[in-house]
Simulated assay, not measured.
Amino acid sequence: MKKLVMGMLGVGIGLWSSGSCAEDLRQQMVASTLVTGTVLVSPDGKVHSFKVDQAEKLPAAARDLLNRNIPTWTFERNVALPVDITERMTIRLMAKAVDAHHDAISIVSASFDDDFRAADETVVPATRTEPKYPGEAVTGNVNGTVYTLIYVGRDGRTQKALAEQVNLRTAVPKKYQDQFRKDLANAATSALSSWTWRVPTSGRQAAAPGWWVRIPVVFTLSIKGKLEIKDPEYGDWDVYIPGPRLQLTLDSADQALQAQGSDAIANGTIHLADPSVKLTTSLGGS
């Protein structure tokens, strides 16, 4: 595959320093893109067929990776119907530098959502509070995305707000990264704690004691005279420093949430973390 990571370092992400520190930051960075489509799952949990949206916008290596691996997936179905069911899928592809001339591309996460779910069968926000940008992050011109996991009670209020992963879109030296990730995570979960929701009133989810939802929270600063960091369009590759996937303290009944893709969710979307199908096999190789 052509060199994606090194070729995009100057686009939308700034280096704090030069020399050996800058080289270390380059080694931490990855290029990533979100791919959407549909997958048709048969009653026995196998992939009957699939379609990738706008596949022509993806590199040949990415198309080949998807074509080789998606047909091998199997699912556990929560819908007891003797027919194929259609799921929307969102897949995160990641390219990471191997050497000065090559990247390795892999499928790192995926999420699935019912394509047929009506508005009264899911969880949607009723009132929202915008997060406050952390002061130190403003001073340091730090941009990032916080992937959150929210538990909504039957009263429509947020009962838990957790941060699963924080990716930095500014090349912060490693010794400062943890603190900035913590600041952005606290800002995101603090705001989401005050959100209220309209909860399911019909369908499979209506009788649940509560609902887990995933929401990406994007922090982006625009500074006069500097290139604004923009969300990539479909098929574009975004460069960032990925944060660790945090191991959350969850009840035993909710442990399966950690196996799902926390960052395979498009910005501006809210994902109900209990789809009709759950992937039971590996996403694929590299």
Rank of each mutant, 00 (worst) to 15 (best):
P82V: 01
A62F: 10
L58K: 09
L66P: 10
L93K: 05
N78V: 02
V83T: 10
K96D: 05
R88I: 14
P59H: 09
M89T: 01
T72P: 11
D84P: 10
A97I: 08
L81C: 09
H102A: 10
A80M: 13
E76T: 04
A61Y: 14
T74I: 08
V98L: 12
I70T: 06
I85G: 05
E76M: 01
N67D: 15
L81T: 13
D99V: 07
N78R: 15
W73K: 05
L66H: 00
A97Y: 01
P71Y: 10
A100C: 01
L66C: 04
N69A: 04
D64W: 14
P82S: 04
T86Q: 11
V98T: 08
R63C: 02
E87R: 14
K57H: 05
A100Q: 09
K96T: 00
E56R: 11
V98C: 01
N78Y: 09
F75C: 12
W73R: 04
L58D: 07
L66S: 03
R68L: 15
I70V: 10
V98Q: 12
V98F: 07
R77W: 00
K96M: 01
I70C: 06
A60L: 08
D103V: 03
D99M: 07
A97M: 14
P82K: 02
T86H: 02
M94R: 08
R77T: 06
L65Q: 03
K96V: 06
N67H: 15
E76S: 03
P59G: 11
T86N: 10
I85L: 10
A62W: 07
E56T: 08
V83P: 10
L65F: 00
L93R: 04
R63E: 07
R88H: 15
R68V: 04
K96P: 00
N78E: 11
A104Y: 00
A95L: 11
I91H: 03
H102P: 03
A62H: 13
T72R: 15
A97K: 13
T72I: 06
N67F: 14
N67S: 15
H101P: 04
A95D: 06
I91Y: 06
L66N: 00
D103Q: 11
I85Y: 03
L66G: 00
T72N: 15
L81G: 08
K57I: 01
E76Y: 02
K57N: 05
I70M: 05
I70R: 02
P71V: 07
T86D: 03
I91A: 06
N69V: 00
D99T: 08
R92A: 04
P71T: 12
V98K: 09
I70Q: 01
K96I: 05
T86I: 03
I70E: 05
I91N: 06
D84K: 11
P71I: 09
A80K: 15
D99L: 05
D64I: 12
V79G: 02
E56Q: 12
R88G: 15
A104F: 01
V83K: 12
A100K: 07
